[in-house]
Design a protein around this nucleic acid. Structure first.
Lengths: 223, 223
DNA sequence: ATTATCTATAGATCTATAGATAATGC
DNA sequence: ATTATCTATAGATCTATAGATAATGC
């Protein structure tokens, strides 16, 4: 593998494990056992590495969120989209953590990320439309659908931060698992409950149960 | 005013304006025209300042989120709680931005913040219960109410990050206003629409309209 | 010849402390 | 006497580059 690609991969790993803020170009070079000079030969600075990582993330999500508009969507489609999105969030989990700082440091990233968000919001709306056509959820006013989609996006992108901050108080070491992350799907499906058609109510509730947090009881209030 | 208090206030201002990550103890001292040594006489380090600020934030929110359980809640109560919470978020807006890093750097803060989150989630549930007693929203299964409350919390605490990242792409300088922030109330009320009693549907929709984002159209998808 | 890599280092911070000096409160 | 403040600085990073050296591709 080329050094340039190694740098990207190692950076992603280190960022995910330790947080972007805690990882310097020195750390990345040391981790790869290359010289800092070598790293700077391939990238002008840390921002450039992050931007490359973002482009991969973007590509991944865009790939999974191609919503067909020539056919109605079924429950399996929804499951697929949710699973894919949370897989993506997991693989690039450092990204949303320091998002504001990253966007402030790199105008390119800022512009691209904004467009990316809008594409995701559009995709969520398309999914709602497709599910309506498929008889899973009832039709909604476009303005309500837009506001709902935004709420879905807010829950999806911030579920991990919630887990990391409200979760395991004492045991810092206990890292999150992908399974825990996917409990976010439970929360997303919660948003959709009121809009389900009668015939899909039970199937969706059953699906939702699969993601229900199986926690020691005191995890968060009332669950 | 005592220097110690000045340091706390100045830090809060600088953190809110520039982000905690971009503000060092040197910056704080320079801003106050005191020596770094003087700052370190009053605080052991930056974490200690942040912890003090958190205690204030906590006190403020706890004060506003005292939910009476001896009487039903009305729509005005809900408005008050929402306004208060968003005011609090605004005054301490740096806090949620770098939350994960802050909690990782300070075990005290980590433990306290976790308890704080749980108190907030409890308060949101109490508000739902009170509104149910007041005939504003219909009764819900406790498990659904818990999941809904969590979604409300996720939307509230992350609305600002959304605005900052998905909003104004090019004009970095354009800072957020409290008014924009309060459009988050529109999103929160969106979550509650399906659970409103018939007689409160119209009043809540009217209230919600007041917070509707009045944006140039292309702001975010479909709005 | 060009590309990749290393060594060495300048320059910029930042944190945190030691030790001196000034101000304040009995 | 005690509290508050300042000056000066050690020590630890980090970023980014210059310039030398090694490896690779025609």
């Amino acid at each position: 593998m080329k050094t340039r690609d190694k740098i990207i991969l190692a950076s992603l790993d280190l960022f995910n494990e330790q947080g972007e803020r805690n990882v310097t170009t020195n750390h990345i070079a040391a981790y790869l056992a290359i010289s800092p000079g070598n790293l700077y030969y391939h990238f002008r600075n840390k921002s450039d590495i992050i931007y490359e990582i973002f482009l991969e993330y973007e590509k991944l999500v865009d790939y999974y969120l191609q919503i067909p508009d020539d056919r109605p969507l079924r429950l399996e489609d929804l499951t697929f989209y949710l699973e894919s999105v949370f897989d993506g969030l997991w693989s690039y989990r450092f990204f949303h953590r320091d998002l504001e700082f990253l966007l402030d440091s790199d105008p390119r990233l800022r512009i691209d990320y904004r467009a990316f968000t809008n594409r995701c919001l559009e995709a969520i709306q398309k999914i709602f439309e497709g599910l309506t056509a498929g008889g899973v959820i009832v039709a909604q006013d476009p303005s309500l659908r837009a506001a709902m989609s935004l709420n879905v996006w807010l829950v999806i992108t911030n579920w991990m931060a919630f887990l990391k901050t409200a979760h395991g108080a004492v045991d810092l070491s206990s890292n999150l698992s992908l399974t825990e992350l996917k409990q976010g799907i439970y929360q997303v499906l919660t948003l959709e409950i009121p809009y389900l058609t009668p015939e899909y109510r039970e199937p969706v509730m059953t699906l939702r149960e699969k993601y229900r947090p199986a926690l020691p009881g005191d995890e968060w209030v009332g669950v």
